[in-house]
Design a protein around this nucleic acid. Sequence first.
DNA 1: GTGCGACCTGGAGCGCACTCCATGTCAAAC
DNA 2: GTTTGACATGGAGTGCGCTCCAGGTCGCAC
Lengths: 117, 117
Amino acid sequence: MYTPSEVVEETGFSLDTLRYYEKIGLLERIGRNSAGQRRFSEADVGWLGMVRCLRETGMPIATMLRFAELVRAGDHTISDRIKLLEEHDRQVQAQIANLTERQSYIHHKISYYRNFL
Amino acid sequence: MYTPSEVVEETGFSLDTLRYYEKIGLLERIGRNSAGQRRFSEADVGWLGMVRCLRETGMPIATMLRFAELVRAGDHTISDRIKLLEEHDRQVQAQIANLTERQSYIHHKISYYRNFL
DNA sequence: GTGCGACCTGGAGCGCACTCCATGTCAAAC
DNA sequence: GTTTGACATGGAGTGCGCTCCAGGTCGCAC
């Protein structure tokens, strides 16, 4: 069991963001102690790792929400989850390709400028 | 000289976005014909290519604005422009590295799911 | 001469993903 | 026993980057 501040520390999400994610249903209702304070399970923290990965790769929250629902719905959704992740993977690949191409433009521009000095 | 709709076609920016960029000073005041309609020069379109590259690689508008000001200020700012672009290049590199690492996590997750089928 | 479509302007509105705020509770430290 | 600090809640506010809208002008096709 992890306290909120431990989860902030481990995941890099702010406390407000964790509350927000719970509010919109990206996190399932987190357990509470007797004082009503959140206590995150190992599974919660693991799921947050996945959330971080998907966010950092540009998946919109609405899509993550669909993925979260598939996970909650049980094992019969596994092929749907694979489809969703494969589609996302293609988008990540496209992002990398785009960045790489644009980066070469930047490199050319830098060389161009260097010839002026 | 290009009409607004030609520039929309060529650059992929919407007309509203072009007007917005002019309003905030990311584009210098675009020339007008006698009817007050914009006529973009070759140089305007070229600059928009640079803008597109910087935007697609995640540079915030505020930073592009600083770059635009350096360009307008003349040749004595070329080393500053190089510094700015090199710093941006590092950030692009970091983005690519991050995406690549996250992508391998996604791949692992997909394999993990496949073992369930 | 009227309809149409491309364009103009200033300014309001929007979607996303948080982030902040006021107010309150509880537990341990001193 | 009171101060401190980590937490709670609901709801408002923020920043970014556009995007949309109302109302108007202009030039050409019919």
